[in-house]
């Protein structure tokens, strides 16, 4: 009888201790907001271009957490979709062409002698990457430009071009080696296969 009593008391005690512990930690380590939104937002390219139909990357992140499709971000492209799929443990789907296609990274460029200084592009830029003042020439701070092309549409004289970012020695990178794996002989072009056979011989 006493053994049963002891067991019950011990279990009660344990329950109490862990209850207090859990209760305390739920208050002490309370997470404000949904941390998943932060994570998703961290994966998005932050161009704030609105091509997904949301006014910025964070709203789209929130929408994704609430169940929206993850394939609406053309600037992020397939790699972002893959990363999102990985994070959310859903299937990676191809980019939804309806929201635009993955394009070469580009920056805005203002043809400065055509600029009339209307400041419309400055107001449109989500990251304050355009410098200028009313009736003064504007210019793009290329290092800050995310290439969202939101400034192109408001320009009344169409003096803004989206130029693809040129590869420099510092940004150049190796390509993926062409797969030389040809499982059977007919995978190769006949001439090549003969040639390589000769070379080996």
């Amino acid at each position: 009888m006493s053994a049963v009593l002891i067991a019950i008391l011990v279990l009660l005690g344990l329950g109490l201790i862990f209850g207090i512990l859990l209760g305390y930690s739920s208050i002490r380590f309370k997470v404000e907001g949904n941390p998943l939104v932060e994570q998703v937002d961290g994966l998005l390219p932050q161009t704030q271009c609105g091509q997904c139909g949301h006014p910025g990357c964070r709203p789209y992140a929130e929408a994704i957490v609430n169940g929206e499709a993850i394939n609406k971000c053309p600037p992020g492209g397939q790699s972002t979709i893959d990363a999102l799929a990985d994070l959310l443990d859903v299937e990676a789907i191809p980019l939804d062409a309806e929201h635009g296609e993955e394009q070469v990274k580009s920056v805005a460029y203002i043809r400065e002698d055509e600029c009339i200084g209307c400041t419309k592009c400055i107001q449109a830029c989500p990251v304050d990457a355009i410098l200028g003042a009313a009736k003064q020439m504007h210019t793009v701070i290329t290092t800050e430009c995310t290439g969202c092309d939101l400034c192109v549409e408001p320009c009344p004289v169409d003096c803004i071009d989206m130029l693809p970012i040129e590869t420099t020695l510092n940004t150049w990178q190796w390509n993926m080696p062409k797969s030389g794996v040809d499982l059977i002989a007919t995978d190769l072009r006949p001439g090549v296969s003969q040639h390589s056979a000769e070379g080996k011989a």
Binding site: G42, Q46, G56, P126, V127
Partner: peptide, 29 residues
Amino acid sequence: YYRFAKGEIRKEDAEQRKADHARLRFEAR
């Protein structure tokens, strides 16, 4: 292959840095 992978990772990191920077600027704005 390794050089390719390194390049890709560097590029992604750079993009990530740029994205974070852009986010900061966007939020500030």
